[in-house]
Amino acid sequence: MTDTTLPMPRPGARIARAFDHGTAFIGFLTAGDPTIEDSERFIRTMLDAGCDLIEIGIPFSDPIAEGPVIQEADLRSLQAGTTTDTVIDMVARLRPDTEAPLVFMTYYNVAFGYGLERFFTRCEETGIDGIIIPDLPYEEQAEARPIANAHGVALLSMVAPTSQERLRAIAGQAEGFLYVVSSLGVTGVRDTITTNLAPILQTVHAVTEIPAAVGFGISTPEQAAQIGSEADGVIVGSAIVRLIAEHGGEADGPLRDYVTSMVRAIRPVDAKAGSDRNAE
């Protein structure tokens, strides 16, 4: 059922690497929180500790899909003077040192306001593999996808517990990886995830070869292990951002420990996770 007539080269081809050695651990942080230099170092640390893919949040003034933890991080970052340009420049500094897939997560007005052509040109120049735009649903993607793809950037899609009959259509045209939203509501740590993900993941896997990663609400190794047993990847955002909020510029150690524990939980046999994928 999968569409095999994708343009060459396949946009975001590097994203597949995150999933080629077992369940992927995907970490999110808000770029520029507390400073852009800290973010650059944190990303290197997270990759070194075994993150298979990093979602780099370009902060937005009004992130309507985020809970308080990421809202506050966006605010701190913007107040510290972060701009789309300073985030892209940071990626440009990182890129020569890593082949790990890196994707942006931001709201549509950030890309739209920058100019879509100019934005995706800069993504291509700096080696960004994909972009997640939570307020650009399936019906509205046609205006951005051709531009993103022309610059080799995958426009990632999201599905939610409410997607129902939309699920097959969205999964069918997904590229990079499919972001499966675990629960109703906004991002943020949840004690329990009550959605029955199995039928969603079965439908997705029946329709597409693209891996499916689950996010929203996952924070503990136990949750990661449980979700990771069903999904191709586990996405963690708020728990990481909360560590950064607590430790500020000193978050390197806590981040390393946390990522290590999460990777161990989802890939118990992968002892040397990440160490061969990220140079100094």
Partner: peptide, 28 residues
């Protein structure tokens, strides 16, 4: 693959290029 219609510029809910449904998937 199955496909849903992608909204053309003249779709219901569009006023010229303006309008649309730029909202998280959970609400679609």
């Amino acid at each position: 693959t199955t496909s849903l219609p992608q909204a053309p510029a003249s779709a219901p809910g569009r006023f010229g290029p303006y309008g649309g449904q730029y909202i998280p998937e959970t609400l679609m």
